[in-house]
């Protein structure tokens, strides 16, 4: 009975080079980000002043903030694609990142004075921003979960959370090419809200989407 199975599995063995999992997750993630970028350009459009914006520091702060978020999410998703994985370090990284930009936001508000407070925190798109981020994260999440289903996550909600964190971070990186906001408090508050919403949705969906076939 089980001998047949072992024969079958041994005959089916193909070499599995190191980093196969990383390569597979990376390939699907890139595909997801590409779809998300096409969606953003077709639906929302690049910011009209993009060529000017890339000369400003705030553009690169947004670029780095979202890229670091995405990188932390990618590492967390890689860890949790493996049995018994955890994302302790990445969680600490996220908290540190948000604390740093939050502190920078407070400094900015103090420097600019109370008259500018409202603009810095709410900009012109505060309520739309998290919604767009979650929408743009859907293709990235789907691609990531597709790859993780063939891995071996054992904590499904947490693995889904990590996939959502990566999808949210990468979607926000894409969204930053559309978004014209430049307040540090705005970025900290609304980008983070969008990313965490994507992560929480990811955890809920992951509970069943990541079940082993």
């Amino acid at each position: 009975m089980a001998d047949d199975l072992i024969d079958h599995l041994a005959a089916d063995l193909a070499p599995t080079p190191p980093r196969t999992l990383q390569r597979r997750l990376f390939g699907w993630a890139v595909l997801g980000v590409a779809v998300s970028a096409v969606l953003m350009i077709a639906w929302l459009g690049l910011r009209p002043d993009l060529m000017i914006a890339i000369g400003t520091m705030m553009f690169w702060v947004k670029f780095a903030f979202t890229a670091i978020f995405a990188a932390l999410g990618a590492l967390a998703a890689l860890n949790l694609a493996r049995p018994g994985g955890s994302m302790m370090r990445q969680a600490v990284g996220v908290v540190t990142l948000v604390a740093l930009t939050g502190a920078a936001g407070i400094v900015q508000m103090l420097v600019m004075g109370p008259g500018e407070m409202r603009t810095l925190v709410f900009g012109g798109t505060a309520l739309l921003c998290p919604f767009y981020i979650v929408a743009l994260s859907v293709p990235i999440y789907a691609a990531t979960v597709w790859a993780m289903r063939r891995a071996a996550p054992t904590n499904l909600p947490l693995a889904g959370f990590a996939a959502g964190l990566f999808a949210g971070g990468a979607a926000t990186w894409v969204y930053a090419f559309h978004c014209t906001e430049s307040g540090m408090p705005f970025i900290t508050l609304w980008y983070t809200t969008g990313i965490l919403a994507a992560a929480v949705l990811g955890a809920i969906v992951g509970r069943w989407a990541l079940r082993w076939r």
Binding site: A2, L5, I6, L9, T16, P18, L21, R24, P83, A152
Partner: peptide, 17 residues
């Protein structure tokens, strides 16, 4: 036992050397 052996086979890429 069989299901686990199969999972070990199909998910062996998740073993970190």
């Amino acid at each position: 036992v069989q299901e686990t052996l199969m999972a070990i086979h199909t998910r062996r890429l998740t073993y970190d050397r």
